[in-house]
């Protein structure tokens, strides 16, 4: 049917992006492959719920997010995958750590990506959604079922972790 043909095209166009997103979120190529398949499977079954006026990427990305986040929640076996807002706020480091952009050059994006991969899901997921997916805080908050400020705190913590990670790496490199 027409639906099948159209879907085939969408699949070819978006597979790589969906796969990339899943890999970021899950930190594993193998898991990401399954997740991408599952995402398209779900999209196929629910294609009639897709609102044609909205970008397809946004719709399929949210399916992928939902699936990956569910998967991560199952792995941690706890509902509080993203921690408690107040606790996270307390754990914010002091203000004077150097900025990432000062620590490494753009050419060294690899080491940053390595550091992103080392982040726990708690920080990695919002970071990917915000800066890779370019989702707004509201959208992330809705997707993760947490408050907007909580998203802000998690992102800030994520950035601090990345900085700390890169500083350590730099120190090891010097030794």
């Amino acid at each position: 049917m027409a639906r099948n043909a159209a879907f085939e095209i969408l699949y070819k166009d978006y597979y790589v992006r969906v796969f990339g997103l899943c890999r970021r979120l899950l930190n594993s190529s193998e898991l990401a492959e399954d997740a991408a398949q599952e995402t398209f499977m779900r999209a196929y079954k629910n294609l009639r719920k897709y609102d044609i006026d909205k970008p397809f990427w946004q719709w399929i990305a949210s399916i992928a997010n939902n699936y990956c986040i569910d998967l991560l929640r199952q792995q941690t076996r706890t509902d509080a995958l993203f921690g408690d807002e107040a606790t996270e706020l307390e754990q914010l480091a002091a203000a004077d750590t150097p900025m990432l952009s000062d620590l490494i050059a753009v050419e060294e994006a690899d080491s940053l990506n390595g550091a992103v991969a080392n982040l726990s899901a708690k920080y990695r997921v919002p970071l990917v959604l915000a800066y890779f997916n370019q989702f707004r805080y509201n959208e992330i908050a809705e997707q993760l079922n947490i408050s907007r400020t909580h998203v802000g705190v998690l992102l800030l913590r994520a950035k601090q972790r990345l900085r700390a990670d890169l500083i350590n790496e730099g120190a090891e490199g010097v030794q």
Binding site: M41, Y44, F132, Q134
Partner: peptide, 28 residues
């Protein structure tokens, strides 16, 4: 810093994409 993170994340994506073979979509 935010711009840097975003560009770094995007930068890595196409490289990884090259290695990704698009598997045949198995319809449910």
């Amino acid at each position: 810093e935010v711009r840097f993170i975003a560009s770094a994340l995007q930068l890595e994506a196409p490289e990884a994409a090259l290695e990704v073979a698009v598997p045949e979509f198995s319809r449910p």
